[in-house]
Amino acid sequence: MREVAIIASAQADNTSTTTSTPVEMLIPVIQQVLANASMTKTDIGFWCHGSCDYMTGQPFSFVSAVDALGAWPPIIESHVEADGAFALYEAWMKIQTGEIDTALVFGNGRSSSGDINRILTLQLDPYVVGPLWPDDRSIAAMQARACLESGVVTERAMAEVAQRSHRNALTNPKALRRGDHSIEALMAAQLVADPLRELDCPAHADGVTAVIIAAGDRARSLAARPAWIRGIDHRIESQNLGNRSMTSLPSAALAAHKAGVANDKIDVAELHAPYSHQELLLTSALGLSESTTINPSGGALCANPMMSAGLARFAEAATRVMNGTADRAIGHASSGPWMQQNLVCVLEGE
């Protein structure tokens, strides 16, 4: 395997609504990540984008994103209908073939264009589940209820996740939501989808994340301390809501195993867990101990720009490796109801 590292990243400020077009939001972030790497567009061997038509309500919505890249002369480029973190996976794989040495990957999403809780319903079985229109929060609440009843999580542990996330976001200028809340106040807050409270739920946002990865010595020449991808893997599990575990995440556990998470201690984990109880399930599936700092950025509870949020976790984890705060970190992205699909990446300093 070729050595590949994240050498730069950039994110837009997460907002609850924006009047810019999606491509107008992209351009400053693309320019910023290139500037952060002291690169120009001609230094990029491959471009890969993650987004979703149903987020913007427009077929082929990703086509206009090419307008943000200055794709002239023509570029080698691809698109995944998924989080930008999966675009990073495709680019990592392309570097492994030896065809390219550098790639710029990005993800963008506008949760404010429509009712995201309702849009996500369209991910369900279109014949027998979707027509009932269960929304995303309700489905997550069913899982949270099962976790509470089985004793896998407690309401207090969920409140602690919400408390820590919103406190961490106090130092993240990109976050959409932040605050210092007492556990008592969090547990007394109004239920929005029993047993979930507002701050147990993702802060849906409009956002953009871009990351540049490079191979071997190219990475060393572009960054003082690249965040080396030592393991990366993604796995999926059944979506069938009636025929799968509601209290564990076998796909996340398998991806973590394949990515080599357990080979050494993890200093920082940036996890894309949209709901507070899901973070608890995920840390358990990944086998993380108390010594790991979880979501110093505040995570998805404080800003969840769908299709960009997973790549944002990679960017946050890489930043902490690159600035020396962490020697070994996890970037994680998820997709689907009950975190059906999980992508795990282990990043290390030199």
Partner: peptide
């Protein structure tokens, strides 16, 4: 009318436990 249908198609493809990757260009 199915958003990211690969998620739902996992059972039909006996794909549980595998990597499933979606492309759209």
């Amino acid at each position: 009318g199915v958003m990211m249908p690969e998620l739902w198609l996992v059972d039909a493809l006996a794909a549980a436990g595998k990597p499933v990757f979606r492309v759209h260009t």
